[in-house]
Amino acid sequence: MPAMWWLAGAAVLVVLLGLYVFWMSGRVDRCHARASAAQAALDAHLVRRAAAALALAGTSGDEQLRWAARVALDAAHDEREAAENDLTRVLREHHKKVAGSDPDHADDADVVAASRRAALARQVHNDLVRDALSLRRRRLVRLLRLARRHARPAYFDIDDPVLDRA
């Protein structure tokens, strides 16, 4: 009779392992789906920020800002990070100027809000990428290639675009 018990035990083990794999595969799918949605959201917020910067350049006549905003909007994929960092730098300079003169009536309120949303989207994106990458590193996930249907998510490596924390 012991052979039957061994068999039953092995069957239970297989079922449990199967459930675990099923659950893990769900986690992998969810993390990747979120990471890619976060990338789209971050992209949209950066475009919104550049558009707000362009509008600000229009009213303030700041040519350097207009140029930086245009470059960020037109940047190819591999130039995007550098272009966004340039825009952040120019916006910081502009913000410092207007915040220094009259903090309550700054003309860049829209840009400050758009920058904050972009910073938040960047943080959420990088967190979700981190979660997805740490799942991809797990032995079981690699062994069974549970992530094979998903492209490897990548961090979007830009400086914190926030202009004003408060």
Binding site: G26, A33, A37, A41
Partner: peptide, 11 residues
């Protein structure tokens, strides 16, 4: 914005 519909089995 970033909440994608769950594609796999959940908890």
């Amino acid at each position: 914005e970033v909440h994608a519909v769950d594609t796999g089995p959940d908890w």
